[in-house]
């Protein structure tokens, strides 16, 4: 969270909580409103808890009405079938390779391009930057069909390169990096040049070390985008072994209309959720930094 630096009072006395309390409405009204917010937050968590509980229910319990809120007879059956009978570990590997690849290339292209757009003058700078920015605003599905035909011609179905290639450039990352580069003082680069550093050295020894926070944010966002991507991976993988985790998991329940196997579906959904949850809990601050850097100038 950005802390306020303007408030003169802050320098004179310890931060008084009443100073931060900007909404001096009656206390009870505020508590009531907060209770509403708390309820909302809990409602948002219900589906996740319900999914976890569902993964331990056998079909008969899962279909019971009224539903058993806590499964009276929890079983590992669903997890067993998910992990042993289905290539779910392979799906997870696929997801890690695809999301990791997208993050890796996204960081490289964003950092290099962001540096040029943020720190260098050259003909075409504005037009190139706006071209990339425009695609940040455009839904990918607009050019999905020709891309599909292109991949078909390349023979890249059921392959990592086919799943990663359209994401080599991460427009939001380029944008975020440009904003970030503009905040690096020119004097640092000037000083480096005076010392006779080459362009590559300037980039490696001055720009890269300073960009670590932005690189972290981009890596995480690109990874999340890659991990959660569904439509393109659905289009690219036709062989069961090449599915990514979300696509594979989605197919668990889709097979066999009428007799949907809920327990395995919920176990699969939980399985797909856990890696992102861990990443979020570990890198929460990067998420917040990444979101806010792009939006607020300076």
């Amino acid at each position: 969270m950005a802390q306020n630096t303007y408030s003169p009072a802050k320098n004179l006395m310890p931060v008084d909580s009443s100073l931060r309390r900007r909404y001096f409405v009656g206390r009870w009204l505020r508590y009531l409103a907060l209770a509403v917010v708390l309820a909302l937050a809990l409602i948002l968590l219900i589906p996740i808890v319900w999914m976890l509980l569902g993964s331990f229910k056998i079909q008969r319990v899962a279909l019971a009405y009224p539903p058993e809120l806590i499964p009276s007879n929890p079983v590992l059956d669903n997890w067993e079938r998910l992990l042993i009978n289905r290539p779910s570990l392979r799906w997870m590997l696929n997801s890690f390779v695809v999301a990791g690849g997208i993050a890796f290339f996204g960081v490289i292209t964003s950092t290099c391009a962001g540096y040029a757009f943020g720190k260098k003058q050259f003909p075409g700078r504005t037009i190139f930057f706006w071209l990339i920015l425009m695609t940040m605003m455009l839904p990918r599905q607009i050019y999905m069909i020709p891309l599909f035909v292109l991949m078909k011609n390349f023979g890249w179905f059921n392959s990592y390169q086919g799943m990663i290639a359209p994401y080599l450039v991460y427009p939001f990352g380029v944008f975020l990096m440009r904003q970030f580069m503009q905040s690096i003082p020119d004097e640092l680069l000037e000083a480096g040049k005076m010392d006779g550093a080459s362009e590559i050295q300037l980039f490696r020894h001055i720009i890269l070390p300073l960009s670590k926070p932005a690189i972290g944010a981009i890596a995480i966002f690109a990874f999340m985008a890659g991990w959660n991507d569904y439509l393109w991976q659905l289009v690219m993988a036709t062989d069961e072994l090449w599915l990514t985790l979300p696509v594979g998991v989605a197919k668990l329940t889709a097979s066999g209309v009428g007799s949907i196997d809920i327990g395995v579906g919920m176990a699969g959904a939980t399985f797909a959720f856990i890696p992102m949850l861990l990443i979020f809990l570990l890198f929460q601050n990067y998420f917040i930094k990444g979101i806010t850097v792009g939006a607020l100038k300076g």
Binding site: P47, M51, Y65, P67, Y230, P246, V249, G265, T270, F273
Partner: peptide, 30 residues
Amino acid sequence: FRAAFYMPVVSAGVVLAMVWVYIYSQEYGL
């Protein structure tokens, strides 16, 4: 609160869609 509201963003759309199908079910839904 930030984490609670951000949690559904982190979980893939697929994950939530599957759970909600179960929750919305006519015969046995939550």
